[in-house]
């Protein structure tokens, strides 16, 4: 996946998009937003399932699960032999929002960067087609404008924009062009870039010199206030598209110790167990330190280690927090304090 690959754009009618999705879902697992109750979440579309995204803003939970599936067996032990069984074949996701593709770019830098890569993430990421859907109207808690994650110039196969009765389609990869070529009858060419009205986000997070400000704000009383509100439920980490921390758990093979699966389970820095070592010592015991870990990882360590904020402004942690902690508000207060001190 790379940058612009074709100077041509395409249009596809809504009816023909359904045809395209039907045909793709016969060839590979295809995921798309599906409404359940009041929320959308990514579900597998079987052939014949109708795409119904009326009223879709973004999914309740992030698309991470298609790349780092919760409970994936990353290692198996069978009668004296270890093996890693990798995801084989292809998969596709339609309707992922640009901010969440930016989150994948963060995950790429963590999982595929530095000294090692995570072998399972690598296979899934390389073999999953990404068909994002551009956002016109952001949700109540979104602040992608601030995080510069509203637009996408890379890391998609086909970029879809809803322009009324048609979707505008921009190819972003060879694989994307091949899908268009294989389904010629469904697409018509267009010379125009997609033009939609972008409603600005209501929430804002000023990122100017943020890692520097945070570096000096470790002792700020704001963290005590946030820690007093927080109940360590870990919903923020669970719902964040760039949170990836995990533990490796042996499926204990009680029934048969000769067949064991090692399961990768998500884990959350908001919980005490996250930093508890043998002997019982917990390195991040005070809640304040766990709260700080969340904010600092997103907004200070991320830029330091991966050259990117680990927050893409999706607003999910704001929506999910039962204690009404709002990252834009917290950072706003930290910045105010900093500006006053100057």
């Amino acid at each position: 996946m790379g940058g612009p690959i074709s100077s041509k754009y395409y249009l596809i009618s809504k009816k023909d998009l359904q045809r395209l999705l039907d045909s793709l879902s016969k060839k590979m697992p295809l995921f798309a937003p599906v409404k359940h109750g009041k929320d959308f979440n990514f579900k597998r579309l079987e052939s014949g399932d109708k795409l119904d995204i009326a009223g879709y803003t973004n999914t309740e939970y992030p698309p991470r699960g298609m790349f780092l599936p919760e409970g994936e067996a990353v290692l198996e032990y069978n009668k004296g032999k270890f093996s890693e069984n990798f995801f084989k074949g292809k998969a596709a996701v339609f309707g992922i929002r640009p901010c969440d593709v930016h989150a994948l770019l963060v995950l790429d830098r963590v999982m595929l960067g530095h000294d090692h890569f995570e072998s399972h993430y690598k296979r899934r990421r390389e073999n999953t087609l990404v068909f994002p859907l551009v956002c016109g109207t952001p949700g109540e808690n979104c602040f992608c404008d601030s995080m510069l994650t509203r637009n996408l110039v890379e890391s998609f196969d086909l970029l879809f924009t809803d322009i009324g009765h048609h979707y505008h389609v921009e190819p972003g990869s060879k694989a994307g062009l091949e899908i268009i070529a294989a389904n010629k009858g469904l697409f018509q060419e267009s010379v125009h870039k997609a033009a939609i009205v972008e409603v600005p986000c209501k929430k804002k997070l000023d990122t100017a010199n943020l890692p520097g400000i945070l570096a000096k704000a470790r002792a700020s009383g704001v963290w005590d206030e946030v820690a007093k509100q927080c109940v360590s439920c870990a919903s923020c980490t669970f719902s964040c598209p760039t949170c990836y921390c995990f533990s490796l758990v042996h499926d204990s093979g009680i029934a048969d110790p000769e067949h064991v699966k090692v399961i990768r389970e998500l884990d959350y820095c908001m919980l005490l167990r996250y930093s508890r070592v043998a002997g019982g010592l917990v390195f991040r015991e005070p809640r304040k330190e766990r709260v700080q870990q969340f904010f600092y990882h997103k907004l200070a360590y991320g830029p330091e280690n991966e050259g990117r904020f680990h927050c893409v402004g999706c607003g999910r942690c704001i929506t999910e927090c039962m204690a009404h902690i709002d990252i834009t508000d917290v950072i706003g207060r930290i910045r105010d304090e900093h500006d006053k001190r100057k």
């Binding site: 533990s247 490796l248 884990d267 820095c269 930093s275 870990q293 360590y301």
Partner: peptide, 24 residues
Amino acid sequence: LERLMQCGIGKCGHCNIGNKYVCT
């Protein structure tokens, strides 16, 4: 230094101190 380690290769997050990873 010692921290809880799950992956040993800089991916699981457990061993971090500030922006550093004890494992890598």
